Amino acid sequence: MVVDKYMDRMKDDTTLTFEFICEKGKLVSLFWADEAAKVNYREFGDVVSFDATFQTNNVWYLFLSQESLTIERVLLLQLPTVVLTDEDVAMKIAIERILPYSRHRLRMWQITQKLPSKVCAELADDMKFKKRFNKLIWNSRIDASEFDIRWRSFIEDYKLQEISWFSKMFHMIESWIPAYFRDMPLSGLMRTTSRSESMNSAFNKISHWGNSLVKFFSSFDSAMDRQRHNQCYLDHLSNISKIKSKISLKIMEHAADIYTNEVLIKVKKEIEQSLFSCSQYSVTNEEFYDRFVVMQYKDIMGSTPTVVNEEDSESECDVPEKTYFFKVVYDKKESRFECSCSLFFQNGLVFSPTNGIFPLKFTV
């Protein structure tokens, strides 16, 4: 019935894609995408997340983990840079075979949920232990070598050497720790499960894991219509009303023109933070580049950034104890900034170290 419904719909909508695979008279995999979904993927499909855990049972799980599903057809327009999944072995094998040039990454949230069951009850209830663990693994501002040092220190301090789960996760470290993805644009999807959970919540309101396939498709269409309507409404609000700032800066005015209100709140916070936590430590002017070293104070930041080489911070003047240094390079020809924190590259937002050196004549 579902197949017949979508085959009939394709006759009236030539932009709709619907494909399915049957084996021995049974439907084992299917894929569908309307034009709106294709446009969204074309614009934002450099990072793709597969969530095979939503209200799963043995039937629904097959639709995502069967290798017979031709992923090339799923990814119609371009191959993603990064593919995110849970620790499902079938998905790992399929991605390695069909998307060999895509980076496979595991969703961190599902890994961290296992932590309490892997340690003793005393550590499971120790807030300092959990805070230190989360602060370590979620830190996207340190590089891989620094992470390794901090991980080993963490393991030794809490005497976790004999727990095999920690050894296993360390050997898989390149698949789930942000420090190993500093060279990859993650489009703000660091905490991917929060987005998956948001989507699951939307479907929860109108569907149930025990529904038939026909009911599921009906619920899916309703959920997508509702989500797209809400998106149009929020876009409309962003167009007719902008968040005002008490700080008069050209970069703030430019941000208000190009960002939605939700993103603008984050950008506004970074710009304002840069005024109080960042300052130019040194600047070197060259023919094609201006090179800055920016100081940022940890007490105001709330998180630990990447530290540049020690020789970049040598000076006769005194430096506050909790201070970190970033390299920021301005390409005069391209009118482009690049910061050693890599957060603009990863998340698409200009973070406070870069904002800290913007002359008022620059807009980005």
Score class of each variant (00 low, 15 high):
200 N>G: 12
137 I>M: 01
104 H>P: 02
180 Y>K: 06
99 L>C: 09
149 I>V: 14
176 W>L: 06
198 S>H: 14
174 E>T: 11
211 N>V: 04
205 K>V: 13
195 R>H: 04
206 I>N: 06
118 K>N: 08
152 R>Y: 13
131 K>C: 00
107 R>M: 13
150 R>D: 00
107 R>T: 05
104 H>W: 06
110 Q>H: 10
218 S>P: 00
155 I>P: 01
141 R>A: 07
170 F>L: 06
214 V>F: 06
165 W>C: 10
125 D>M: 04
199 M>L: 15
151 W>D: 09
157 D>Y: 13
103 R>G: 02
111 I>H: 07
111 I>R: 08
102 S>F: 01
203 F>Q: 10
143 D>G: 14
214 V>A: 13
145 S>R: 09
194 S>F: 11
142 I>E: 04
160 L>Q: 08
145 S>M: 09
205 K>W: 02
184 M>R: 02
183 D>N: 12
167 S>M: 01
136 L>V: 11
145 S>P: 09
206 I>R: 01
140 S>I: 05
128 K>A: 09
147 F>A: 12
192 T>C: 15
157 D>A: 03
101 Y>D: 05
181 F>V: 02
205 K>I: 11
200 N>Q: 07
157 D>C: 04
157 D>L: 08
125 D>N: 14
179 A>R: 04
138 W>V: 00
155 I>F: 08
193 T>R: 00
109 W>Q: 04
216 F>G: 07
185 P>Q: 13
143 D>W: 00
161 Q>I: 13
174 E>H: 14
166 F>H: 04
112 T>K: 15
196 S>V: 06
145 S>I: 06
208 H>N: 15
97 R>M: 05
164 S>F: 12
178 P>K: 09
161 Q>V: 11
165 W>M: 02
98 I>H: 14
